[in-house]
Simulated assay, not measured.
Amino acid sequence: MGAAEERLDPRWVRAWCERGGATVVRATDESHRATDALVDLTPIPSDLTTLYWVLAEARLPDGRSVHSAVTVAALFHEYGEMEIPGEQPALIFAATADGHACALSGSGRVWQARSPYATGQFDLVANSLQEFLETRR
């Protein structure tokens, strides 16, 4: 699945949650309101909106965590959008077990910070959010 060709499908996200492997907190009315507030706050990548309509947050088997919409908003207030050369601005939406920020860009690609700080240099780790979730099982 190429990031530019296809976007995250909520049916795929639901099936991914059912397969197990990750600890998932399902979306609630409260998390939907937090997602709406995040959409109002910043130009959130559409795949992240799709993800948050199915789940509120998740912990992947390798220790990475997908933050809640409330946490993403707080990180946006603190750091703003991540500037990645040659890429559309990105939002921090997840972190590794050792604190390296993961950011989703408007193109749908996922980037990981080289250091445990939210700002700095980022490396491409997945061409899509779906690929990020699939390879982290």
Rank of each mutant, 00 (worst) to 15 (best):
M1E: 11
G2M: 13
L8N: 07
D9L: 07
D9W: 08
P10K: 07
P10I: 00
W12I: 00
V13T: 05
R14T: 05
A15L: 12
W16D: 03
E18D: 14
E18P: 01
R19D: 08
G20Y: 08
G20E: 05
G20P: 05
G20L: 05
A27Q: 03
D29G: 13
S31I: 00
R33E: 14
A34M: 06
T42D: 08
T42Q: 10
P43Y: 07
P45K: 02
P45G: 02
S46I: 06
S46Q: 11
S46D: 13
D47K: 01
D47E: 05
L48W: 09
T50I: 06
L51C: 08
Y52N: 06
L55R: 00
L55F: 01
A56M: 01
L60M: 10
L60V: 01
P61I: 00
V66W: 05
V66E: 06
A73P: 02
A73H: 02
A73Y: 03
F76T: 03
H77L: 12
H77Q: 14
E78S: 11
E78K: 13
G80Q: 10
E81R: 13
I84C: 09
P89L: 08
P89Y: 09
P89N: 08
A90W: 06
A90S: 13
A94R: 10
A95H: 15
T96E: 15
G99R: 09
H100N: 14
H100K: 15
C102L: 15
C102Y: 08
G108W: 12
G108S: 08
R109H: 04
P116T: 05
P116I: 01
P116H: 12
Y117Q: 15
Y117A: 12
Y117V: 08
T119F: 04
T119W: 10
T119I: 00
F122H: 14
F122I: 05
L124A: 12
V125S: 10
A126M: 05
N127C: 01
S128C: 02
E131Y: 04
F132M: 06
L133Y: 04
E134W: 07
R137G: 06
